[in-house]
Structure formats: C-alpha cells, structure tokens
C-alpha cells in the first residue's frame, strides 16, 4: 500500500510492507484451505474497514449500524442470483446503487445531528434492516438466502478457496486504491477540514452536510460491494451475519488499526480476524482472552496499531495540551497551569 507513494521508503518501513505482500501472495499458494478461508475473511474486513474508514476516519461520523449496508449488498446479490439468475458481475452495480440510495435515505435527515446521536440513529437503522430481513418473506426470513451460485469468469467457476481468495483480493485492491485516491483528493481534504473543525471548514466555504453525505454514501457503497462478495463466498446468507455485533466488529477494525490510516485498516482487519482464530487453541477461554486482548492493545497503543500520518500532523498541536491534561488526570492531582 505504501508502494503507492512517490517517495522511496526507508528500509525499516519497507521490511514489514514486503513481508505483508509476500504473505498475501504466498498464502493461497502454500496455505491450507482453512488458512486461505481465514485470509479471505480478512480481505472482506479490509473492504468493510476501508468503507467505514471513509465515514468514521475521514469524515469523523460515528456509525454503529454499518452492517446494514453490508447486508443490503449481500442480499441484493444473493436474491438477484438465486431468484432471477442474474450473473454475479451484473449484481454489483445493483448492489452499489441500492446501498448508495439507502445511504442517502438514512443520511439526509440525520447528518445534521451531533455525532453521538448519529451513532444511535445508525444503530437503529442497522437493527431495522436486520429485523426487516428476518421478518420479510422475500428475503427468506430467518433462513435467509441459500444456494447462491459461485461467481464465474467465462467458463471458470470461482469455487475453490484459492479462487475466492483471489477474487476477494481483486475487490480489496480496487477498494484500497479508491480509498487512497479519495484521501488525497479535494474531497479528502474537505473531509479532513470538517473533521478537525467543522465551523472553520464552513467558514472556508466547505458545505459540511454535502460532504458528510458524500462520505456516508461512498462508505455505504464500499460495504455493499463487500456484501456482494460475501454472498458468493458464503453461498448462504442469513440475518444473523448482520447484527449489531457485526457493526461493532467493523468499527473495531478501524479503531484498532488506527483511525484514518489505510495500512492501519489492513492491520486491524488481520488482528480482528486472526486473533480469535489463533486463540482457538485456548478453547473455552477464547472469548475472554479476546476481550482482555482488546483492552491491553488499546492501553498499549491508544492511537491504534498504525495511526494515520495526516491526522497526526494536525493533531500534534492539540496533542501537547491534551497530553498535559491527561497526565494530570492520570496523576489524580490537580496542578495549577
């Protein structure tokens, strides 16, 4: 991902990047189907994380119902393929349009709210979508949609774990490049300005609601695409995959990785998926260890595993005073300033 920057990388940064690239290429060649499946799941969460990163990381809007867009994408592809025998590739634009529309529907009335109220409204939206998918007959009710065909390229059926991995990798790379360019575009700078100081941004001629809505819609489309891929990967989807927990998991990916940072999202997705799998050896203590692990990771790296550079530069000025205040709180004693 860092290879996209124009400046040559210092050696200590090149090593981990090269390791990740080697791992990503080596996994489907040398890995077992299980490891490849876990890798594919990481790719799904990279797509989801990158999408939510636009909403939370770039535009600074807390979204607790992001799984709704993931669900809408998955159901659109699943239903079109199973009921109407539409080819996978043609369901993608449909999923994109539907998720964008739902992003507008939920975003328009709510984006003027304070971020915490926005959080609960998005949470509500997420629950409404999940419950509706469970209650409606055309979505298959609690059983969901099953028997979804595999994606095909010409005569090639993408069925094996390797094929699914490469398909997921292609999707993830498209989303990654898109995200990267967005961050560096005029749009990206507008989001940054709004996130850091909405009033100042508005004074500078940036209309916050428009840009927020755009972030919301783009984030929704990313999730929709991830959902389409998820549907053909799993071949059976049901509402239990799109719960509040799912939204929280995606949020964990980006906060753990480092808000607003693309390598951070990749790292965060890897940790969120691989950590519980690696802890399978601990059997009954697995989820407890995961919970403790989350606290410890946050205490050790409150800014995330790989925080964004842009955000840091801006924050550096603020950081000094905040750090002083934090130190005082931690010390528990008020000191005169």
């Amino acid at each position: 991902m860092k290879a996209l920057t124009t400046q040559p990388l210092p050696f200590h940064r090149l090593v981990p990047v090269a390791a990740v690239v080697l791992l990503a290429i080596g996994l489907p060649i040398f890995g077992t189907p299980y490891l490849i499946d876990v890798g594919t799941l990481v790719l799904v969460y990279i797509m989801l994380g990158l999408g939510l990163n636009i909403v939370v990381g770039y535009a600074g809007l807390l979204d607790l119902g992001y799984a709704a867009f993931f669900a809408i994408g998955a159901y659109t592809t699943g239903l079109l393929m199973v009921r109407y025998h539409v080819a996978f590739w043609l369901t993608l634009p449909a999923a994109g349009i539907l998720t964008a529309l739902s992003g507008i529907v939920i975003g328009t009335p709510t984006l003027r709210m304070r971020s915490d109220y926005l959080a609960i409204v998005t949470l509500g939206f997420g629950e409404i979508v999940r419950i509706a998918a469970t209650n409606f007959t055309f979505t298959g009710g609690p059983e969901g949609v099953y028997g979804i065909p595999h994606a095909t390229i010409g005569r090639l059926v993408l069925r094996s774990p390797q094929a699914l991995y490469w398909l997921g990798m292609a999707f993830a790379l498209v989303v990654l490049v898109g995200s990267y360019n967005l961050a560096r575009s005029r749009l990206g700078r507008a989001w940054l300005a709004i996130r850091e100081d909405e009033a100042a941004a508005q004074a500078a001629g940036i209309y916050p609601v428009y840009y927020k809505l755009l972030a919301y819609v783009l984030g929704a489309v990313f999730a929709g695409v991830a959902g389409s891929f998820f549907a053909v990967k799993l071949t059976a989807i049901n509402p239990s995959s799109f719960t509040f927990i799912q939204s929280v998991t995606i949020l964990m990916v980006i906060i753990l990785g480092g808000m607003g940072s693309l390598p951070g999202v990749i790292l965060g997705a890897a940790v969120i998926i691989i950590l519980p799998e690696a802890l399978r050896a601990f059997d009954r203590v697995r989820m407890l260890a995961f919970g403790v692990g989350l606290i410890v990771l946050m205490l050790l790296r409150p800014q995330g595993l790989w925080p964004s550079r842009i955000g840091q530069i801006v924050k550096r000025a603020v950081a000094l005073s905040e750090a002083r205040a934090a130190a005082e709180i931690a010390a528990g004693a008020p000191t005169p300033e």
């Binding site: 200590h12 990047v17 791992l23 390598p263 790292l267 790296r301 595993l305």
Partner: peptide
C-alpha cells in the same frame, strides 16, 4: 514502532 506493529501481526 510501525515495524514493531507489523512484526506483531506476523
């Protein structure tokens, strides 16, 4: 710190 983070992932 970042290479450390990456090593942690590995």
């Amino acid at each position: 710190r970042r290479s450390l983070a990456c090593l942690a992932m590995l």
